[in-house]
Design a protein around this nucleic acid. Structure first.
Lengths: 124, 124
DNA sequence: CCTCGTCTACGGGTTCTTCAGTAGAATAAA
DNA sequence: TTTATTCTACTGAAGAACCCGTAGACGAGG
């Protein structure tokens, strides 16, 4: 139930962790577009750890950081917030906005259709 | 191209403006769940105006505030950010998360299907 | 010894959020 | 009319969160 929210920089750091599965400070730093000081990245990770969104284990002299919340859960929370605040609760409007993207490959659209068909075909 | 981003409280205020079309400070304050001091709401609106997201017109002694950015545009920006950061660029994964909501009415799912069919049926 | 990479400790600057205090103008009351 | 109340906006300011970094300690490896 607890709301999950990440300010911009922390979201970028989480994104790296979700993508890589886990990472050291140096690895996160490497993966970020902007190059920040080592300690800046470390600070973000420590803040995230305070909030309970990541944890770390010692690995040699360094720490390896792991995401504690799953991307799907964070995504669900973020999407619900957007749906309610921006699309006034309409998942349909939100969906319309997503598929309006011209760059969306046809294949992906078709997988969405399949997914939707399965979802609609569930037990009555 | 410019990135649109709203911190939590400002997003709530924008949400009210999108829902009502326009509103005075008192109306926004009324619409918010938490009850904040009048000046707190005013401050948020002034900040949003500084950023260029809302404008105001005089209406009697009060100001009436209007959103300058459309909900769809703000939504597109927010969704792209979530898609890239949380779902690693996959609109499909994001969509899967959306339709996993058990509370989604069947009718809405079917309208999504229709929408998708139209989108897929576009001439090549 | 010196360097490199790491963590800790700490601080400064900006943004976000909230509100008290103040003042002006319209309205109501005396 | 004069006074009081009410509604409005503006200002300043405080505290928290966010963002970024310097300085220092510490150990491993050259």
């Amino acid at each position: 139930m607890s709301e999950i929210y990440f300010p911009p920089r922390e979201l970028e750091v989480m994104s790296v962790l979700w993508r890589l599965g886990s990472a050291t400070v140096a690895e996160v730093r490497e993966a970020l577009r902007e190059d920040l000081a080592y300690t800046s990245v470390l600070s973000a990770l420590q803040t995230l750890e305070d909030k309970g969104y990541v944890r770390h284990e010692a690995e040699g002299r360094a720490y390896r950081y792991f995401p504690v919340v799953e991307a799907e859960r964070a995504g669900g929370s973020a999407l619900a917030r957007i749906r309610d605040a921006i699309f006034q609760g309409s998942a349909e409007r939100m969906f319309a906005q997503i598929v309006s993207d011209r760059g969306l490959p046809r294949e992906e659209l078709e997988r969405m259709r399949r997914l939707l068909a399965e979802r609609l075909g569930e037990k009555p």
